[in-house]
Design a binder for these strands. Sequence first.
DNA 1: GGTTGTCCGGATGTCAACATCCCGCCGTCG
DNA 2: CGACGGCGGGATGTTGACATCCGGACAACC
Lengths: 249, 249
Amino acid sequence: MRRAQRRGLAHEAADRIRESIFEGHVPPGAALREVELASSLDVSRGSVREGLAILEREGLVHSEWHRGARVIDLGPDDVDEVYTVRAALERLATRTAAALATPERVAELSALVGAMERALADGAESPVLLSLDMAFHDRVYETAGNSRLTDAWHGVRSQVYLFQLTRIRLGHAQYRSAVVDEHRDLVRMLAHGDTPALGDAAEEHVDSARRALARLLGGAPPPAERRADGPADPLRGRDPRRGSEPSNG
Amino acid sequence: MRRAQRRGLAHEAADRIRESIFEGHVPPGAALREVELASSLDVSRGSVREGLAILEREGLVHSEWHRGARVIDLGPDDVDEVYTVRAALERLATRTAAALATPERVAELSALVGAMERALADGAESPVLLSLDMAFHDRVYETAGNSRLTDAWHGVRSQVYLFQLTRIRLGHAQYRSAVVDEHRDLVRMLAHGDTPALGDAAEEHVDSARRALARLLGGAPPPAERRADGPADPLRGRDPRRGSEPSNG
DNA sequence: GGTTGTCCGGATGTCAACATCCCGCCGTCG
DNA sequence: CGACGGCGGGATGTTGACATCCGGACAACC
């Protein structure tokens, strides 16, 4: 059985705030004032504060000293950052999962793809598809069984979710047509144990999303490099924004 | 100029506690009691609490609901987890850095290698070498200019530091003999812009550390797979310990 | 006119007290 | 003798109040 988890108000608060952001009730760049949220959620400022720290870990929120927290404002450069990191993680996760997957796990993933097919056929809303999409990848990371890898994934997961939401909003059809096929391919390779090709396929899966977003958000045209040996495309530099390197020395 | 940073007591507390752990004053698995630390550091429990959250983000500390925080206890399985993730990150970071590096940046890295050579020749303590080692990689990530990538790195950095410390403690000579050469190679490739080989070299650099540690900690013998197209070795599964997946749906 | 100094509202950072929860111990019961 | 249940110490989770800091506006000064 899965172990039960007691969580506490901070996690609850984080969940609510995250929901609000995803549902668009709080626009990008908006200030998240602690007192406001505290009274709104009916918890103390301390708990809200801790919740905001959780969201900062997920990259959904950016906060500065004595300047409060704001919803992150994602631009074209962020697409590159997030998806480049995600591609590297996904490559590792998928390959590791392939090595450890039990038939039951593969069946679960296959069932998720089946659910996506049905949802697509039933003309379900795209956010429903997106939920299945995210669940699929969560399952893959879970199968990989590497808690550090999962943590790293959680560091970009919410941002990916946000990006895919805007992708859906701007380019509906394209997402719907690609999602199911790509995941079905992934499952097939995973079941077949085709490890060498899997890494590339997982990266390509992520990279295709990146390209679609780059096109929609109108960033500088991506270099469209051939990708036979990994993602070689250089990302445009960007200020390191968040300071505070751990200072062990 | 580098922007000035005001940090606050939480970061200060985190730094002190981190130091204590690195210097071995707090053994692995030991409980980190909030009241104790608070009186010891002469700050309030709230700040200590926030500091512990920071350390948890770095993977140095593990805490459970109403059960407090403990220093993480690293075993053979954790070596695989940490270094497998690190290899993936380092691959991306090094390749990206190669694409963006200015001559000045390469010179800085080269200077760090020079400092390592001098330290080695002067018979400096190994922890000094390790500091330069970490500084080198920090610099690489900084050059890559991807804040998400840097965040992910910070998620394993302290654990890597801890592992390298035990590596030094157990297998002194081997680390000293390998470090300088490997970093010099990295700089050479980076200066030369030899991108395709760089990714593999960076991965190999990390993987050699992983193997050394696996040997020293006496884990199950690693599968010693040929690594021509990436790290294919499956990691042994492990309980997902930390729960709390972000629950957006 | 542009720059600097000062002030004030509002928000965050920090603190110490109250509420809740674990864990080990021990007595009791089957 | 082993299992269940309650108790008490101690630690964490949560809260509301105080201290500090930021940002903009206005006024003084060169």
